[in-house]
Write a protein that binds this DNA or RNA. Structure first.
Lengths: 206, 206, 206, 206
DNA sequence: TATGAATGAGTCTTCATTCAT
DNA sequence: CATGAATGAAGACTCATTCAT
């Protein structure tokens, strides 16, 4: 398990990065093998097809969500609303880091392979559900600060929507402005919801 | 000239559809040639590389924006705010039509080729600018119904952001719900802006 | 004739240079057309095949021999033996000029196409005959300075042999040394012949 | 390993022959694959590019020099001067064998690829060095029979020069005469050197 | 378990050439 | 005369995958 799984892990990690940088189609298994220091044939011990390697990568993303994306924010920020924007800021930092190049790996794969690889599509959906779940959790924690009729599930979807759409435009323009503009609008929207929620609380208390 | 340019057009249109359905990498020029009833070598009479064909496709999208996307909505709807949601509804119909399969062709290409093909990236940005321009125009027409401090340019970016992010999730879940949820949230936000704007007008009149 | 033949000349001259720089096979007619500012189809008005273009180039070399190679030397040098070495020095200058890159255009084509293009081979042979003819002429003029039994025809062949073999090694080593060494040896040989010839003259006179 | 390396060897040997017969550019890898009974893709298991295959061929020529070219002459001839002319005669036999068709494989490649493939150029130079080395060795062994001031390194270069230039003309004229003429001249030159060398010995002994 | 040789369909692209205008 | 569209075979090379060891 040790040596083997470390080889397997190396392959998955290499594939993850290459799929992120170049996309699924544009990444060749020869590249994966070379960059992971595995032999060409060895790849097929762990993954019977390229698609199965992709599935493993998508599973990895599910597993990385908490330790890489969520936990760092949660450990730094406690306010649930700010945690949501902390997550959005984490993606912003990713854009800064890559010079607006690679964007969101899940979003990339979503648009590239959804039609053709149904099993990958399911795992992509599961990734999105993971993200949405954490955001939903934050919103639920701030439940009392929102107006009563706010649909927090829809709002969580919306946050994810904004994040992905904003990343896309930032990449297309190679510029953070569309990202910042989108997040600013989202902030304005949520502020308005919180403002109304605050009024409700006040009147309720009174 | 007619026959000639029609061959070229046929190639571009075929490539447009294939890039939309399968993406840029997954589309082979052999497919493009066959489906456009051109011989393999003829392709290179018009386009020196696959990338140049992509550029022609992206130019075509710029040209199609008004007649295919905008005009049908504008001829049906007159209220500028409703025109924005009319455009969003047009994309929804596209999702219905393809069973949430292909999504936004520009968005797809944005995430797939932005990093690797700089010239394509520029044309993708130009496409986004086209969309944003029409939305901005609608928002400007409704200028007086918004609060004074609304940043309509940011808001136009935000609309596009929502559209693209919503399409992505709809595809990933093969389900319109995330799309409808996102548009509903956007509608709520804009309603709140309009409500505040209406108050401003009232007070101004007073 | 004027406009037409100038187009034709441009094509031939362009092909000549490209064949010289890259060889016959590695030169594409598309390159020739582009660099000669001729349209792709136009080429076939003047030359029915690529081979015929090569034949025209080889004819051109026959025509250029006197004005470009021989005349400049003959106008500068009068001694027939020194004219031979002047021609060799002309080729040396060509090597210097191209950094030992392209070498002798006839020699290049000789080794590349002799086997496959019989008509070209004939014209290449004719080119060599032209060179050999001028060298032979020089040697004949110096007839009395050589020993009586010198075979001047063989010696002319030998001079050409040395030139071509020396150019080849200079190119392979990207270095003039093998060229200079070969010419030095040839010079030594001819000096020895002339020394013996001088003795003969002396004894004859006596 | 045996079966494996034999496949590789077969490919190299096939390429060697085809490059010799048709040149580098005019040889297609499809031909190489077919004639070596390898599948098209297999070629790239061993050689990443056509150029690398050429490099392997040139390495092979280095290895073949002794067993194919030098050893047969050395085992038949003992006099060092005659060994030099034995090598030249070996090339003559090659011309006879191919009807003055293919010539010297190294010389062919030298003129065809020197400019464009720097790594090949180096190996071609190394081949020439190999040849020159053996000739030099012969001349060194006959050191005492030459005049004291003979530059044997230059003379070795000269022998190679004559061989290559003579082969070229033989091919161009499809006739052994230029070859024989050139070798005869070289023989005459060396005879004169040896004659002078013999005189020196005589006077030295005296 | 792991490997690397082997595969052959497929990639984009270039080629010399033809043909209708 | 001249052109540029059209051709289709062929080019080098890559692909995901298989298989014997």
């Amino acid at each position: 398990m040790t040596a083997t799984s470390s080889t397997r892990d190396r392959i998955v990690e290499t594939a993850r990065l290459l799929f992120w940088e170049h996309g699924y189609e544009a990444t060749s298994l020869a590249d994966v093998a070379e960059k992971s220091h595995a032999r060409s044939g060895s790849l097929y011990h762990f993954f019977r097809t390229k698609e199965e390697l992709l599935l493993a990568v998508l599973d990895r993303y599910v597993n990385l969500l908490w330790p890489i994306v969520i936990e760092p924010v949660f450990s730094r920020v406690t306010d649930p609303i700010e945690r949501v924007f902390g997550i959005l800021d984490g993606y912003r930092q990713g854009l800064v880091y890559t010079g607006c190049a690679h964007g969101c790996p899940i979003g990339n794969l979503a648009l590239e392979v959804c039609d053709d690889l149904p099993r990958a599509r399911e795992k992509i959906a599961k990734n999105f559900e993971g993200w949405r779940g954490w955001i939903r959790k934050c919103l639920d924690e701030a439940k009392d600060r929102f107006p009563a009729n706010v649909n927090r599930e829809q709002l969580a979807v919306f946050v994810l929507t904004v994040m992905e759409g904003a990343v896309m435009q930032a990449r297309a323009h190679q510029n953070l402005e569309p990202y910042d503009a989108s997040v600013a609008q989202l902030r304005d929207y949520i502020n308005r919801l919180l403002a109304e929620g605050a009024q409700r609380s006040k009147s309720t208390i009174q």
